[in-house]
Simulated assay, not measured.
Amino acid sequence: MDLPLVVGVDGSESSLQAVDWAVDAAARHGLAVRLVHASMWERYEGVGLTSDLGRPSEEQAAEGLVRAAVERARLRNPDVKVSGELLPEDPEVALLREARNASALITGRRGRGQVMELLLGSVSLALAARAPCPVVVVRGDERSRDAAHGRLVLGVGAAENSSAAVGFAFREAEARGCVLEAVRAWRYPAHELVDHPLAADESARHHRQMATELLDAALCVPARDHQDVDVRRAVVEGPARRVLLDRASGADLLVVGARRRTGRTGLQLGRVSHAVLHHAHCPVAVVPQHG
């Protein structure tokens, strides 16, 4: 049985946008959607006091929040199976546990009550950096989120970090019936200084060729397994984070990989993934590579 898409909801506009995105994705992939709201209301609330004042308790308010999110999801697409659950836990802890039994974890850019100047909410960042399943952070303005641009961008990094991301991107492009633009950035090594123009040209050709070969190797097997996907390769000189942010402008989704090293704790998120999560103008999928 296919695992559901799990969405963290907290009543914020950002999390409701994540609900919409997840329902659309679930319809494409034939999956269910599980909406989860986690809150530590029991620690902070005096139930008797709130009842005496005639105000709904935090738990009652949270239950209403989940019901509203479930109703929104069902109105978005009645054919998608939707369930909701309220958990009296820390959001990050609860959602990381839920991620163990999810096809993907979907979250908004920032949660309710967070400082608007922050580029990415702390919970969303922690989930992207620690979850064992793919995490989609629904970024971008309304047009970039809801319009079908027909293009998905995949950042192809080192083979040991990106094979899972490549597979994810091909499956998503196939489900969407859209173009998959696979991008490999390259740069001169910092220690390589070439003064002569001819030598510089030769060095550039060498590094571009290496990047092309790495890109072709990464795409070879999945392209053979997903022959209906229109793949367009791009080898671009420049810092990977800048290249991907430029290419992702006007895309439906940007997919990047993140290495999860066995036995290590804490955030495991590379600089490129970290940068695009903060600055991309479209939803970003971070796909973990375990090992």
Rank of each mutant, 00 (worst) to 15 (best):
216 D>W: 09
87 L>Q: 09
9 V>I: 06
258 A>W: 08
77 N>C: 00
148 A>G: 11
16 L>E: 13
132 P>G: 10
149 H>M: 15
152 L>A: 04
179 V>S: 12
50 T>R: 12
56 P>W: 10
266 G>W: 09
269 L>P: 02
190 A>T: 13
53 L>S: 14
109 R>Q: 15
135 V>R: 03
105 L>V: 03
175 A>T: 00
242 R>V: 07
42 E>F: 05
167 G>E: 11
14 S>W: 03
116 M>N: 09
227 Q>E: 14
66 V>P: 03
107 T>R: 02
114 Q>N: 12
133 C>L: 07
275 A>E: 11
68 A>N: 07
52 D>T: 14
244 L>A: 14
224 R>Y: 13
169 A>T: 02
176 R>Y: 04
104 A>R: 00
150 G>P: 14
47 V>I: 11
165 A>L: 09
32 A>G: 15
145 R>A: 02
100 R>L: 13
90 D>H: 15
257 G>R: 06
28 R>E: 02
129 A>E: 07
251 A>R: 04
271 R>Y: 10
289 Q>H: 12
250 G>A: 04
174 E>P: 04
135 V>F: 02
81 K>D: 08
207 H>S: 14
40 M>A: 10
41 W>N: 14
246 D>Y: 12
215 L>D: 14
265 T>K: 15
158 A>M: 10
173 A>G: 05
183 V>N: 05
176 R>T: 08
89 E>P: 08
287 V>Y: 07
187 R>W: 15
258 A>H: 09
277 L>E: 09
213 E>H: 13
3 L>M: 09
290 H>F: 12
101 N>T: 14
27 A>D: 00
265 T>A: 15
92 E>M: 15
205 R>Q: 12
245 L>T: 03
13 E>C: 07
200 A>P: 08
183 V>E: 11
6 V>T: 05
145 R>D: 00
105 L>P: 02
54 G>I: 08
233 R>Q: 15
153 V>T: 08
178 C>V: 08
47 V>K: 06
210 M>E: 14
184 R>S: 10
91 P>A: 10
26 A>T: 00
